[in-house]
């Protein structure tokens, strides 16, 4: 009898362990902060809707201040996601990504909205925490020497052709 009871208790422990593992696997990403990519957010928007998430990437374009809040767009190399955050948090951003600069890499924590009621149905993140992981920097232009040579060669050819054209035009008019 005791053998059967012991066996049953082992089964119960085993089942509990499985239950805990399954719950952890399924519930952790949606109950705690989960680091997600933009593709995850867009492709599984319903799953993440209303959940707290952590999202990171490069701030690109303008920091658009709207009253006490601001919009930034954060690109994780696949897509850029709009982040709505308090103005004071946006002040921590020093450089945004453009042709001449690599923007700050930031990590934001906040609530993800598949269809934001406050912002006309935008897919966005309302952030309450922002960490600048890596400061942005200005990027020096790299110009290939071959590009310069080809451009100069074309310039010389075109100028020569233009000179020939105008000389011929001048003589044909004189005739």
């Amino acid at each position: 009898m005791s053998h059967v009871t012991r066996h049953m208790s082992h089964v119960k422990i085993f089942l509990k362990a499985i239950l805990i593992i399954i719950s952890t696997c399924y519930l952790l990403p949606v109950t705690c902060y989960s680091q997600v990519s933009s593709s995850d957010l867009i492709n599984n928007a319903k799953q993440y809707d209303g959940k707290e998430i952590v999202y990171s990437g490069e701030v690109i374009g303008d920091v658009m201040v709207r009253g006490n809040f601001a919009w930034i767009n954060v690109n994780d190399t696949k897509n850029a996601i709009g982040i709505w955050l308090p103005r004071n948090l946006a002040k921590e951003i020093s450089i945004t990504g453009s042709y001449e600069a690599k923007g700050d890499i930031v990590e934001v924590k906040g609530k993800f909205n598949r269809v934001c009621i406050e912002h006309g149905g935008d897919l966005d993140v309302h952030a309450y925490m922002l960490n600048v992981i890596k400061k942005g920097k200005n990027v020096d232009e790299v110009i290939s020497p071959r590009k310069i040579k080809v451009a100069i060669a074309f310039l010389i050819i075109c100028l020569t052709l233009a000179v020939i054209y105008f000389i011929r035009l001048f003589y044909s008019k004189r005739r």
Binding site: E100, I143, K147, I148, V150, A151, F154, I157, Y165
Partner: peptide
């Protein structure tokens, strides 16, 4: 003050002028 793009477009103009001429 974008230097590299300036060369890109000079090459584009050069190619079109040459072909057109």
């Amino acid at each position: 003050k974008e230097v590299s793009p300036t060369f890109d477009f000079f090459i584009g103009i050069g190619a079109s002028f040459l072909l057109g001429f």
